[in-house]
Computed example of a mutant assay.
Amino acid sequence: MSGDRLKFYGFCFVFMGIVLFCVFMGGYTSFWRSENRIEEAKSFLTDACQARLDLLPELNKMIKENKVPLHGLNIDQTAKKAQAILQYVVLQKAPLEDDLAKKFKISQAKLTFQLKDLFTQLEDPSHKSFSKKMAPLRQRFNAAQDNLFITKKSYNDQISYFNERAIAFPTSLFAKLFGFNKIKYIEISKDLFLPAGKTFAPQTS
């Protein structure tokens, strides 16, 4: 009888060990998968940023060829700075450092502001013929801006999911156990990368 009990206890011990192993591994892999989803969302976002930057040479070429006078713009320099910072963001695999995240937001916000200013100037009646000529390119800018809004939302959603699970019980126990609670992801401001309809909306007097 004692031998049967030992077998039973041994079976229970092994069974509980397997269950605990599965629970702990499940807790670890869920955070690991969440990190991968954040990295994937960041990749989509940086690709969207690059897609908008890639439209600028064509825009500048059209403006120069048609000798369109624009005032108070330095979009080339702004774009170069945004491009340089974007490359650092792409290369950093871990959560963005606070300083780099701030520089990324500022550079993209400045680029958006200058694009809005440029499009506003082109809405002047004196540029009517040129505005018609660049209408297809303007649509591509609108599409790029809308894609930025979509990818930003996806990125923020993934970060919010990770951060909430890192502090909510019982998943916070696994976060503390495996060190995920020390990882801080920063969401992108809701005012950055708005849809084209809001970003490039004509100014009203």
Rank of each mutant, 00 (worst) to 15 (best):
R5D: 14
K7S: 09
F8R: 11
F13V: 11
F13G: 13
F15R: 03
F15S: 09
G17A: 15
I18C: 09
V19T: 07
F21K: 06
V23H: 09
F24Y: 11
G26F: 11
Y28D: 03
F31E: 01
W32Q: 14
R37D: 02
R37M: 08
R37T: 08
E40N: 14
A41P: 04
F44T: 12
F44H: 14
F44R: 14
F44G: 09
L45S: 07
T46F: 13
A48F: 04
A48Q: 00
C49M: 14
R52I: 05
L53W: 06
L53V: 07
E58T: 13
E58F: 12
N60L: 15
N60F: 13
K61N: 15
M62P: 03
M62R: 07
M62E: 11
I63R: 02
E65L: 13
P69L: 09
G72Y: 06
G72W: 06
L73G: 02
I75F: 05
I75P: 00
Q77G: 10
Q77F: 13
A82S: 07
Q83E: 14
L86N: 05
Q87E: 13
Q87Y: 06
Q87G: 10
V90P: 03
V90H: 04
L91M: 08
A94W: 12
A94F: 13
P95G: 07
A101W: 15
K103G: 02
F104A: 10
I106M: 10
S107F: 00
Q108E: 09
L111P: 04
T112V: 06
T112A: 10
T112N: 09
Q114A: 07
L115D: 00
L115A: 03
L115H: 03
L115K: 00
K116W: 04
F119G: 01
L122H: 02
S126G: 13
K128P: 04
S131T: 12
K132S: 12
M134V: 13
P136W: 03
R138W: 08
N142H: 07
A144F: 01
Q145A: 07
Q145G: 01
D146G: 00
N147R: 08
L148R: 03
L148D: 00
I150N: 05
Y155S: 05
Y155A: 06
Y155I: 04
E164A: 12
A166V: 08
A168R: 12
F169H: 06
F169P: 02
P170W: 02
S172W: 01
L173E: 06
L173D: 04
F174I: 03
F174W: 03
A175E: 00
K176S: 13
G179Q: 05
F180Y: 10
N181V: 04
N181W: 03
K184I: 10
I186T: 14
S189P: 06
L192P: 02
F193A: 04
L194N: 01
P195G: 05
P195K: 03
K198L: 09
T199L: 08
A201R: 11
Q203F: 12
Q203M: 15
Q203R: 15
Q203I: 14
S205K: 15
